[in-house]
Design a binder for these strands. Structure first.
Lengths: 202, 202
DNA sequence: TACGACACGTGAGAC
DNA sequence: TGTCTCACGTGTCGT
């Protein structure tokens, strides 16, 4: 059945009664058509291979059609994204024993930056953070602060200024690290009182 | 070109010389073909709609072809799955102020169950947990224990026995809860010493 | 019969 | 030019 309409496809400028002895033009056309259909098959196979590895990743998707499978993939990605957001609020919410500044691009396609500073608490800290970020023309989209046993952790979601230079993450990290240092007393000079342990992560 | 080979498709049992004045058979065939191609278009549109919502979810996927897009979706799902695994180790790793038992199906298609118990620490606890789970013929696939300020949290990944009855989660929860109660001293009877606060989650 | 899902080969457009 | 991707209409199989 595959070539059932070749007599029509073979229409060239040659008179039809010359068709049976295949001409050079026919040969070129036929080989072009063959390579085209083979390439197209390879393309379909690449797509279907990815679809079937997605099937293995999504539970109970064995007998879904392609559209339903992709729909569930969409839901799955959205769900996971939501869970990750909540989980990161939990895991990064606790102040730790170690002074640190973490600055990270949020990987959800937006340009926003996630920043976290952890240090000893002190009254002027919020004001210092505010003016440091204001100097960078970065706007704070979201913030939460947790304090525990004299330690404090402040988490921010920051929208970088479009006007400013590249490497926003770098300058934000630098500005916050300055606050950390001016928190005084560098390494080991601050209170050595044991507060609690975090479980070490494998 | 679209109907270039209708003379072949229109092959019916009628004599060919009756074809030109469109017969009832032709009409039926034509409308069938039309509805078929329309249905196929609807199917393609459903699939492509899901693909384009996936494009919105995956960063920098605007100008990928379908196969590459799906490839990145696969990577994205796997990555998120890995991150979720690590994040749940963090968030559930800390013992809290509250006695609790949590039992959950792991939602990755496997039959494994995630269990967590949090209570005051005591020397016989591990042995008690071990024999409780052994009585259920459940095997411990993975375990991590964290203790903090006299409190303890134990997390398990459990593979349920194939022989045992349904509702494994239920019996596991019951067994662990028994340990919690025999931890003695029920509500509020144990040490009231303040240990630390968790930040409350929005 | 008719409908749904799939793979196929083809024409069109981009590069 | 050839090569790649996509949408389309079609044949076919299963329900």
């Amino acid at each position: 059945m595959e070539n059932c309409y070749w007599p029509i496809l073979n229409h060239t400028d040659e008179p039809p009664w010359l068709l049976p002895p295949s001409s050079a033009a026919d040969d070129r056309a036929a080989s072009a058509s063959r390579s085209h259909s083979e390439a197209e098959k390879r393309r379909r196979d690449r797509i279907n291979a990815q679809l079937s590895t997605l099937r293995k990743l999504i539970p109970k998707s064995e007998k879904m059609d392609k559209a339903a499978l992709l729909g569930h993939v969409v839901d799955h990605v959205k769900e996971q994204r939501q869970r990750a957001k909540e989980a990161s609020k939990i895991s990064s919410g606790m102040p730790s024993e170690i002074d640190e500044v973490i600055v990270d691009q949020i990987e959800d396609g937006s340009e926003q930056i996630k920043a976290s500073i952890c240090c000893d608490d002190r009254p002027e800290l919020f004001a210092e953070i505010g003016s440091a970020l204001k100097a960078l023309e970065a706007t704070i989209v979201e913030a939460d602060i947790t304090s525990l046993g004299g330690r404090i952790r402040a988490n921010f979601v920051i929208s970088p200024s479009s006007s400013s230079a590249a490497n926003q993450s770098g300058s934000i990290k630098m500005a916050l690290t300055r606050l950390l240092i001016s928190s005084g007393s560098g390494y080991g000079a601050r209170s050595k009182r044991q507060r609690f342990f975090y479980p070490t992560l494998s």
